[in-house]
Simulated assay, not measured.
Amino acid sequence: MKFTKDNIGNRFNDDIKSAFQSLMAGDLVLFENIFCSAPDKKERALESIEFTIIP
């Protein structure tokens, strides 16, 4: 099953937290379109992050 959730800010919103609660061993989690604000105030894109839930 695939879920797509949007989040803005430096903390997970309630929608994301709820989705995490339903994860099971073997599920793949992928974070895409990650941006950060650098000390020079410029927004930068970061690489995607992927991991698998283990028991």
Score class of each variant (00 low, 15 high):
residue 37 S to P: 00
residue 53 I to F: 13
residue 27 D to G: 03
residue 15 D to L: 08
residue 55 P to W: 03
residue 35 F to A: 07
residue 24 M to T: 08
residue 42 K to M: 09
residue 54 I to C: 07
residue 44 R to T: 00
residue 22 S to M: 03
residue 29 V to M: 06
residue 23 L to R: 02
residue 24 M to R: 05
residue 35 F to T: 10
residue 3 F to D: 13
residue 52 T to E: 15
residue 21 Q to N: 08
residue 18 S to N: 10
residue 17 K to W: 08
residue 14 D to N: 08
residue 31 F to G: 02
residue 27 D to Q: 06
residue 11 R to L: 15
residue 46 L to V: 04
residue 21 Q to I: 00
residue 26 G to N: 07
residue 54 I to K: 11
residue 13 N to M: 05
residue 14 D to C: 04
residue 28 L to F: 05
residue 40 D to K: 04
residue 8 I to E: 13
residue 7 N to H: 12
residue 47 E to Q: 11
residue 18 S to G: 11
residue 49 I to W: 01
residue 9 G to K: 08
residue 11 R to Q: 14
residue 54 I to V: 09
residue 29 V to Y: 01
residue 19 A to I: 15
residue 47 E to S: 14
residue 3 F to L: 14
residue 15 D to Y: 05
residue 15 D to R: 02
residue 36 C to M: 07
residue 6 D to P: 01
residue 29 V to C: 14
residue 2 K to S: 15
residue 15 D to P: 00
residue 20 F to G: 02
residue 1 M to W: 02
residue 2 K to R: 11
residue 2 K to N: 15
residue 30 L to H: 01
residue 40 D to P: 01
residue 32 E to K: 14
residue 24 M to K: 09
residue 16 I to H: 03
residue 3 F to Y: 07
residue 55 P to A: 08
residue 37 S to Q: 13
residue 6 D to S: 08
residue 4 T to Y: 02
residue 30 L to E: 11
residue 40 D to T: 05
residue 7 N to P: 00
residue 38 A to L: 14
residue 8 I to A: 13
residue 49 I to A: 06
residue 55 P to V: 00
residue 18 S to T: 14
residue 25 A to R: 09
residue 31 F to H: 11
residue 31 F to M: 13
residue 20 F to R: 00
residue 35 F to R: 03
residue 17 K to V: 10
residue 3 F to R: 04
residue 44 R to C: 00
residue 10 N to M: 09
residue 31 F to N: 10
residue 49 I to E: 07
residue 51 F to H: 00
residue 46 L to F: 11
residue 36 C to F: 09
residue 15 D to A: 06
residue 43 E to W: 10
residue 39 P to G: 07
residue 42 K to E: 08
residue 34 I to T: 02
residue 12 F to Y: 13
residue 50 E to Y: 03
residue 51 F to C: 12
residue 47 E to H: 06
residue 17 K to L: 15
residue 4 T to E: 15
residue 40 D to E: 09
residue 52 T to H: 01
residue 49 I to D: 03
residue 53 I to A: 00
residue 21 Q to T: 10
residue 35 F to G: 06
residue 24 M to Q: 11
residue 12 F to D: 14
residue 14 D to V: 04
residue 28 L to P: 01
residue 44 R to W: 00
